[in-house]
Amino acid sequence: MAQKTVLIVYAHHSPRSFNAAAKDVAVQTLTAQGYKVIVSDLYAMNFQPSATPADFKGNLKNPEHFLYAEEAYIAWKEDRLSDDIKAEHRKVAQADLIIFQFPLYWFSVPAIMKGWIERVLTRGFAYTLQNTYDHGLCKDKKAMLSFTTGAMESKYQPDGINGDINVMLWPLQNGVLHFCGFQVLAPHIFWGPARASPSERTAMLEAWQARLKGLLEEQHVAFAPSELFDLSIQGGFRVRPEVKEAYRSKSYGLTTGQHLGKPLPPDNQTKTAAQDQYLVSGKPS
Protein backbone atom coordinates (compact mmCIF):
# COMPACT_ATOMS: atom_id res chain seq x y z
CA MET A 1 0.00 0.00 0.00
CA ALA A 2 1.33 3.44 -0.95
CA GLN A 3 2.44 5.69 1.86
CA LYS A 4 -0.21 8.23 2.89
CA THR A 5 0.71 11.91 3.13
CA VAL A 6 -0.60 14.49 5.59
CA LEU A 7 -0.07 18.22 5.10
CA ILE A 8 -0.33 20.42 8.20
CA VAL A 9 -0.96 24.08 7.41
CA TYR A 10 0.10 25.73 10.67
CA ALA A 11 -0.34 29.33 11.79
CA HIS A 12 1.02 30.54 15.11
CA HIS A 13 3.78 33.01 15.88
CA SER A 14 5.28 31.18 18.86
CA PRO A 15 7.00 27.77 18.98
CA ARG A 16 6.07 27.68 22.69
CA SER A 17 2.32 27.97 22.03
CA PHE A 18 -0.31 25.30 22.62
CA ASN A 19 -0.92 25.29 18.86
CA ALA A 20 2.75 24.45 18.35
CA ALA A 21 2.40 21.59 20.83
CA ALA A 22 -0.70 20.30 18.98
CA LYS A 23 1.19 20.51 15.69
CA ASP A 24 4.17 18.65 17.15
CA VAL A 25 1.92 15.90 18.55
CA ALA A 26 0.37 15.47 15.10
CA VAL A 27 3.77 15.27 13.38
CA GLN A 28 5.11 12.74 15.89
CA THR A 29 1.98 10.58 16.04
CA LEU A 30 1.36 10.44 12.30
CA THR A 31 5.04 9.86 11.48
CA ALA A 32 5.14 6.99 13.96
CA GLN A 33 2.18 5.44 12.11
CA GLY A 34 4.12 5.52 8.84
CA TYR A 35 2.60 8.62 7.26
CA LYS A 36 4.67 11.17 5.40
CA VAL A 37 4.05 14.49 7.15
CA ILE A 38 4.65 17.87 5.53
CA VAL A 39 4.33 21.11 7.50
CA SER A 40 3.70 24.53 6.03
CA ASP A 41 4.67 26.78 8.97
CA LEU A 42 3.21 29.98 7.56
CA TYR A 43 4.82 32.49 9.92
CA ALA A 44 8.23 30.79 9.74
CA MET A 45 7.91 30.80 5.94
CA ASN A 46 6.94 34.49 6.01
CA PHE A 47 4.08 33.43 3.75
CA GLN A 48 2.64 36.34 1.78
CA PRO A 49 -1.07 36.59 2.68
CA SER A 50 -2.08 39.31 0.22
CA ALA A 51 -3.49 38.28 -3.15
CA THR A 52 -1.85 40.71 -5.57
CA PRO A 53 -0.68 40.90 -9.20
CA ALA A 54 2.74 39.74 -7.95
CA ASP A 55 1.23 36.25 -7.78
CA PHE A 56 1.43 36.00 -11.57
CA LYS A 57 4.46 35.92 -13.82
CA GLY A 58 4.21 37.86 -17.06
CA ASN A 59 1.60 40.36 -18.08
CA LEU A 60 -1.91 40.60 -16.70
CA LYS A 61 -4.71 39.83 -19.13
CA ASN A 62 -6.75 42.80 -17.93
CA PRO A 63 -4.52 45.30 -16.09
CA GLU A 64 -7.16 48.04 -16.29
CA HIS A 65 -9.62 46.03 -14.19
CA PHE A 66 -7.72 43.56 -12.01
CA LEU A 67 -9.84 40.54 -11.06
CA TYR A 68 -7.74 38.19 -8.93
CA ALA A 69 -9.69 34.97 -9.46
CA GLU A 70 -9.78 35.45 -13.24
CA GLU A 71 -6.08 36.24 -13.47
CA ALA A 72 -5.23 33.32 -11.16
CA TYR A 73 -7.20 30.90 -13.33
CA ILE A 74 -5.45 32.08 -16.49
CA ALA A 75 -2.03 32.00 -14.79
CA TRP A 76 -2.71 28.46 -13.51
CA LYS A 77 -3.60 27.25 -17.03
CA GLU A 78 -0.50 28.92 -18.48
CA ASP A 79 1.84 27.83 -15.64
CA ARG A 80 2.56 31.43 -14.64
CA LEU A 81 1.74 31.31 -10.93
CA SER A 82 4.36 32.56 -8.47
CA ASP A 83 6.85 30.04 -7.11
CA ASP A 84 5.46 30.09 -3.55
CA ILE A 85 1.93 29.23 -4.75
CA LYS A 86 3.27 26.44 -6.96
CA ALA A 87 5.24 25.04 -4.00
CA GLU A 88 2.07 24.86 -1.92
CA HIS A 89 0.19 23.30 -4.85
CA ARG A 90 2.76 20.50 -4.91
CA LYS A 91 2.19 19.85 -1.20
CA VAL A 92 -1.60 19.82 -1.57
CA ALA A 93 -1.35 17.51 -4.59
CA GLN A 94 0.58 14.98 -2.50
CA ALA A 95 -1.70 15.16 0.52
CA ASP A 96 -4.36 12.60 1.37
CA LEU A 97 -5.33 14.75 4.36
CA ILE A 98 -4.81 18.44 5.20
CA ILE A 99 -4.94 19.57 8.82
CA PHE A 100 -5.31 23.30 9.44
CA GLN A 101 -3.82 24.07 12.88
CA PHE A 102 -4.49 27.57 14.22
CA PRO A 103 -5.86 29.77 17.02
CA LEU A 104 -9.38 31.04 16.39
CA TYR A 105 -9.04 34.78 15.60
CA TRP A 106 -12.18 36.90 15.34
CA PHE A 107 -14.26 33.74 14.83
CA SER A 108 -12.11 32.67 11.88
CA VAL A 109 -8.58 31.74 10.84
CA PRO A 110 -5.60 34.11 11.25
CA ALA A 111 -5.04 36.48 8.32
CA ILE A 112 -1.95 34.60 7.15
CA MET A 113 -3.97 31.38 6.87
CA LYS A 114 -6.82 33.18 5.12
CA GLY A 115 -4.20 34.36 2.65
CA TRP A 116 -3.05 30.78 2.13
CA ILE A 117 -6.64 29.79 1.36
CA GLU A 118 -7.15 32.66 -1.09
CA ARG A 119 -3.87 32.18 -2.93
CA VAL A 120 -3.38 28.39 -2.85
CA LEU A 121 -6.90 27.05 -3.42
CA THR A 122 -6.74 28.47 -6.91
CA ARG A 123 -9.52 28.18 -9.46
CA GLY A 124 -8.45 25.45 -11.87
CA PHE A 125 -6.35 23.73 -9.21
CA ALA A 126 -8.91 23.26 -6.39
CA TYR A 127 -12.18 23.95 -8.18
CA THR A 128 -13.74 25.21 -11.39
CA LEU A 129 -17.09 26.86 -11.99
CA GLN A 130 -18.35 23.43 -13.07
CA ASN A 131 -16.63 21.45 -10.31
CA THR A 132 -17.64 22.54 -6.82
CA TYR A 133 -18.89 20.97 -3.60
CA ASP A 134 -19.18 17.18 -3.94
CA HIS A 135 -17.82 17.52 -7.49
CA GLY A 136 -14.90 19.73 -6.43
CA LEU A 137 -11.42 18.90 -7.67
CA CYS A 138 -10.25 17.89 -4.16
CA LYS A 139 -13.00 15.28 -3.68
CA ASP A 140 -10.47 12.46 -3.17
CA LYS A 141 -8.81 14.27 -0.26
CA LYS A 142 -9.76 14.82 3.38
CA ALA A 143 -9.37 18.03 5.37
CA MET A 144 -10.05 19.18 8.90
CA LEU A 145 -9.74 22.16 11.22
CA SER A 146 -7.82 21.80 14.48
CA PHE A 147 -7.87 24.96 16.54
CA THR A 148 -7.77 26.60 19.94
CA THR A 149 -10.29 29.04 21.37
CA GLY A 150 -9.71 31.81 23.85
CA ALA A 151 -13.02 31.14 25.58
CA MET A 152 -14.68 28.22 27.34
CA GLU A 153 -16.88 25.78 25.42
CA SER A 154 -20.13 27.03 26.96
CA LYS A 155 -19.76 30.38 25.17
CA TYR A 156 -20.04 28.57 21.82
CA GLN A 157 -23.25 26.68 22.59
CA PRO A 158 -26.53 27.48 20.78
CA ASP A 159 -27.48 29.65 23.77
CA GLY A 160 -23.94 30.93 24.46
CA ILE A 161 -22.90 34.56 24.12
CA ASN A 162 -20.55 33.81 21.19
CA GLY A 163 -23.17 31.80 19.35
CA ASP A 164 -23.37 28.24 18.03
CA ILE A 165 -19.93 26.97 16.95
CA ASN A 166 -21.66 25.05 14.13
CA VAL A 167 -22.76 28.35 12.57
CA MET A 168 -19.27 29.77 13.00
CA LEU A 169 -17.69 26.78 11.24
CA TRP A 170 -20.05 26.77 8.24
CA PRO A 171 -18.15 29.40 6.15
CA LEU A 172 -14.84 27.54 6.56
CA GLN A 173 -16.02 23.96 6.36
CA ASN A 174 -18.70 24.40 3.71
CA GLY A 175 -17.69 27.60 1.94
CA VAL A 176 -14.00 26.72 1.62
CA LEU A 177 -13.28 23.02 2.18
CA HIS A 178 -16.49 21.39 0.98
CA PHE A 179 -16.71 23.93 -1.87
CA CYS A 180 -13.39 22.54 -3.16
CA GLY A 181 -14.67 18.99 -2.74
CA PHE A 182 -12.73 17.97 0.39
CA GLN A 183 -14.23 15.29 2.60
CA VAL A 184 -14.38 17.37 5.79
CA LEU A 185 -13.63 15.57 9.03
CA ALA A 186 -15.13 16.80 12.27
CA PRO A 187 -13.00 19.62 13.74
CA HIS A 188 -10.79 19.08 16.73
CA ILE A 189 -11.39 21.95 19.13
CA PHE A 190 -9.16 22.76 22.08
CA TRP A 191 -11.41 24.82 24.33
CA GLY A 192 -9.56 27.63 26.16
CA PRO A 193 -6.16 26.00 26.73
CA ALA A 194 -4.65 29.30 27.89
CA ARG A 195 -7.03 29.23 30.88
CA ALA A 196 -6.56 25.52 31.59
CA SER A 197 -4.28 23.91 34.16
CA PRO A 198 -1.12 22.09 33.03
CA SER A 199 -2.80 18.72 33.66
CA GLU A 200 -5.84 19.80 31.63
CA ARG A 201 -3.63 20.87 28.73
CA THR A 202 -1.81 17.55 28.88
CA ALA A 203 -5.16 15.73 28.76
CA MET A 204 -6.18 17.78 25.71
CA LEU A 205 -3.01 16.75 23.85
CA GLU A 206 -3.45 13.11 24.84
CA ALA A 207 -7.00 13.14 23.47
CA TRP A 208 -5.68 14.64 20.22
CA GLN A 209 -2.98 11.97 20.02
CA ALA A 210 -5.58 9.24 20.52
CA ARG A 211 -7.79 10.65 17.78
CA LEU A 212 -4.88 10.96 15.36
CA LYS A 213 -4.32 7.21 15.49
CA GLY A 214 -7.57 6.59 13.62
CA LEU A 215 -8.05 9.91 11.88
CA LEU A 216 -7.89 8.86 8.24
CA GLU A 217 -10.52 6.17 8.82
CA GLU A 218 -13.10 8.61 10.20
CA GLN A 219 -16.30 9.45 8.34
CA HIS A 220 -16.79 13.06 7.27
CA VAL A 221 -19.42 15.51 8.50
CA ALA A 222 -22.68 15.86 6.58
CA PHE A 223 -23.33 18.24 3.71
CA ALA A 224 -26.32 18.26 1.39
CA PRO A 225 -25.34 16.53 -1.87
CA SER A 226 -25.67 18.46 -5.11
CA GLU A 227 -28.50 16.28 -6.40
CA LEU A 228 -30.81 17.79 -3.78
CA PHE A 229 -30.65 21.13 -5.62
CA ASP A 230 -32.10 22.40 -8.87
CA LEU A 231 -28.76 23.28 -10.46
CA SER A 232 -30.15 25.63 -13.09
CA ILE A 233 -30.50 29.37 -13.52
CA GLN A 234 -34.25 28.92 -13.59
CA GLY A 235 -34.21 26.89 -10.37
CA GLY A 236 -31.89 29.34 -8.68
CA PHE A 237 -29.63 26.52 -7.41
CA ARG A 238 -32.08 26.00 -4.53
CA VAL A 239 -33.25 22.86 -2.74
CA ARG A 240 -35.67 20.97 -4.96
CA PRO A 241 -39.38 21.29 -4.06
CA GLU A 242 -39.80 17.56 -3.34
CA VAL A 243 -36.92 17.68 -0.87
CA LYS A 244 -38.49 20.64 0.92
CA GLU A 245 -41.79 18.76 1.02
CA ALA A 246 -40.12 15.68 2.49
CA TYR A 247 -38.62 17.86 5.22
CA ARG A 248 -41.88 19.64 6.05
CA SER A 249 -42.66 17.19 8.85
CA LYS A 250 -39.09 16.86 10.15
CA SER A 251 -37.84 18.51 13.31
CA TYR A 252 -34.67 19.95 11.79
CA GLY A 253 -33.43 21.37 8.50
CA LEU A 254 -31.01 19.70 6.11
CA THR A 255 -27.79 21.23 7.38
CA THR A 256 -26.50 24.24 9.29
CA GLY A 257 -26.68 26.26 6.06
CA GLN A 258 -29.74 24.75 4.38
CA HIS A 259 -31.90 24.84 7.49
CA LEU A 260 -35.15 25.43 5.55
CA GLY A 261 -36.39 27.78 8.25
CA LYS A 262 -36.23 25.02 10.86
CA PRO A 263 -33.97 24.49 13.90
CA LEU A 264 -30.42 23.61 12.90
CA PRO A 265 -29.49 19.92 12.99
CA PRO A 266 -27.58 19.49 16.28
CA ASP A 267 -23.79 19.30 15.91
CA ASN A 268 -24.07 19.27 12.10
CA GLN A 269 -20.58 20.77 11.67
CA THR A 270 -18.85 19.35 14.75
CA LYS A 271 -19.67 15.65 14.81
CA THR A 272 -20.13 12.71 12.50
CA ALA A 273 -23.52 11.19 13.18
CA ALA A 274 -26.10 8.94 11.56
CA GLN A 275 -27.44 10.96 8.66
CA ASP A 276 -30.91 11.46 7.28
CA GLN A 277 -31.60 9.26 4.25
CA TYR A 278 -31.79 12.35 2.05
CA LEU A 279 -28.25 13.34 2.98
CA VAL A 280 -26.99 9.87 2.17
CA SER A 281 -28.69 9.12 -1.13
CA GLY A 282 -30.74 12.13 -2.18
CA LYS A 283 -33.84 9.96 -2.06
CA PRO A 284 -36.64 9.99 0.50
CA SER A 285 -36.69 7.24 3.10
Rank of each mutant, 00 (worst) to 15 (best):
T272Q: 12
H178K: 12
P15K: 05
E242L: 15
S154A: 14
L7K: 07
I165Q: 12
E71T: 04
D96A: 09
E206A: 08
R80C: 09
V239D: 03
L169G: 11
Q94M: 07
G253N: 03
T31V: 04
G192K: 12
H12Q: 06
F18N: 05
P265N: 06
A274M: 12
K155C: 15
A51V: 15
N268R: 03
E245L: 13
M152D: 15
L177A: 09
E71H: 06
W170G: 04
P241W: 11
T122S: 07
G253E: 05
W191N: 02
K141V: 01
S232R: 05
K271S: 10
A273I: 11
G163Y: 12
N174C: 06
S17E: 15
Q234A: 14
Y35R: 00
Q28I: 02
C138I: 04
V167I: 14
Y105N: 13
G261C: 00
F223I: 06
E118N: 06
E218A: 00
A11W: 04
V9T: 07
D159N: 11
G160V: 08
F237I: 00
V176R: 03
D134H: 03
L129F: 14
K91I: 03
Q209C: 05
Y133A: 02
G253H: 10
K23N: 15
V184Q: 03
G58K: 01
L279V: 11
L205F: 01
S197E: 07
E88Y: 03
K23P: 07
L212V: 00
T270M: 02
F190C: 10
F56D: 08
A210H: 10
K213F: 01
W116Q: 05
P63I: 12
D55W: 00
Q277D: 15
M45D: 14
S108D: 13
A22D: 05
V176E: 10
T132L: 03
Q157N: 14
N131K: 09
F237Q: 04
I85P: 03
D55A: 12
N59A: 14
N174Y: 06
L228F: 01
M168N: 01
D79W: 09
W208H: 10
A194I: 12
A143N: 02
V176A: 02
Q173S: 04
I117V: 12
E78F: 01
L264W: 11
F47P: 02
S146P: 00
G160C: 02
Y278V: 14
E200A: 10
A207L: 04
I112H: 04
M144R: 05
G257W: 10
E70P: 00
K4E: 13
